[in-house]
């Protein structure tokens, strides 16, 4: 298996081909807005941009973002070799114009034209559990979380070689990797609250969490390109909170947390955020948020963090699984 070539192709797909659940959500949103309205026209532009980028294999957005690879590998895998391949793939995708020269040496202030540096792109390795599976709470649910109609759509568009399984227990011996590209405009809007929060009048309960999430959506206007998606972690510590929140963004828009109270909160936040009237690009309208994905983790008695990873409408995440040399594209 030539992992460098495979990952270069994964980057091409991620950077230029918006996941079909996100595209479908944009289309649905466009029909929900008043015909001829600014919001409707903007959403139609987003859909048009999506089609064009896919057809030309050019970046959906010029901010090709921070690249994070979520790996899930069998025991005994040479992870350093995979990491080297990821770096080589980023280098090659940058040369091809699939990634912008998007890296700055923080101390020198100069551009790192290869987009490769220490720990950059980020690779996270896990054994066993699928990286697509960090559903809410401490529950690990296995099996298909994507409804069949969306699976059919995927099959149709990519001509077959796409798995209809968004998540599931990996076959023994297979390597699965998901790539997320997250732009700076949206990452700047990610936030972490420590409850209780006096200014928000938010206490240490799900009602307090709801306030933090709506506040985050409101603050993002004008910065992260709306409509957005929220990945949320309740609990944990500050560092793990951000990682868990970010991982929630790998979940398909149409799924729901297996924890009933979190699923209810996801629905409520989605509904209420879309009543803020911020709209696509913050120019007014009914479509401000496309999804809220919430997980809960244990916490210390002294801490109650609400960590939010804000993702813009260019919600770039795609995966690939390799089992005994057979390649399956995911997402």
């Amino acid at each position: 298996m030539n992992w460098t070539d495979l990952l270069t192709e994964l980057i091409r797909r991620t950077t230029s081909d918006l996941p079909s659940d996100v595209e479908a959500a944009l289309r649905t949103a466009a029909t929900a807005e008043a015909a001829q309205s600014q919001a409707c026209v903007l959403l139609q532009s987003l859909v048009a941009n999506t089609g064009l980028a896919r057809q030309q294999a050019t970046p959906l957005c010029q901010d090709t973002g921070t690249l994070t690879f979520f790996w899930q590998v069998p025991r005994g895998t040479d992870t350093q070799a995979l990491e080297r391949s990821a770096r080589a793939a980023v280098r090659s995708a940058t040369e091809k114009g699939w990634l912008r020269r998007n890296t700055i040496d923080t101390l020198a202030g100069t551009s790192v034209d290869t987009n490769v540096a220490e720990g950059w792109p980020a690779c996270h390795f896990e054994q066993g559990e699928s990286p697509r599976e960090p559903l809410g709470g401490q529950i690990t649910a296995h099996g298909d979380v994507r409804p069949p109609d969306l699976a059919d759509e995927l099959q149709g568009r990519d001509g077959g070689r796409v798995s209809s399984r968004a998540a599931g227990s990996p076959e023994r011996g297979s390597v699965e990797v998901w790539l997320m590209q997250k732009g700076g405009g949206s990452e700047n809007m990610s936030a972490q609250y420590s409850l209780p929060d006096e200014a928000l009048d938010a206490g240490r309960d799900l009602e307090g969490v709801r306030k933090c999430l709506l506040q985050t959506v409101w603050r993002a206007q004008g910065f992260g390109c709306a409509p957005g998606v929220l990945g949320v972690c309740i609990g944990s510590d500050r560092a793990e909170g951000f990682m868990t929140a970010k991982r929630q963004l790998l979940r398909p828009l149409c799924d729901a947390s297996p924890v009933p109270e979190l699923a209810a909160l996801e629905r409520r936040v989605l509904d209420e955020a879309n009543r803020l009237g911020i709209g696509p690009m913050g120019m007014g309208g009914k479509t401000t948020l496309l999804g809220a994905k919430i997980a809960a983790r244990p916490r210390l008695p002294a801490s109650y963090f609400v960590t939010v990873a804000y993702m813009c409408w260019v919600c770039r995440r795609r995966g690939v699984r390799v089992t005994e040399g057979v390649v399956e594209w995911l997402g």
Partner: peptide, 30 residues
């Protein structure tokens, strides 16, 4: 206000690159 994230669509409207300044000092993106 241009459409945020509509990078491919907008690139289609760019007919030509007439020139560039500060390429070495600021890098291609800036």
């Amino acid at each position: 206000q241009a459409v945020g994230g509509a990078a491919a669509l907008i690139a289609q409207r760019i007919k030509r690159v007439e020139g560039v300044s500060f390429l070495d000092t600021f890098g291609a993106t800036e």
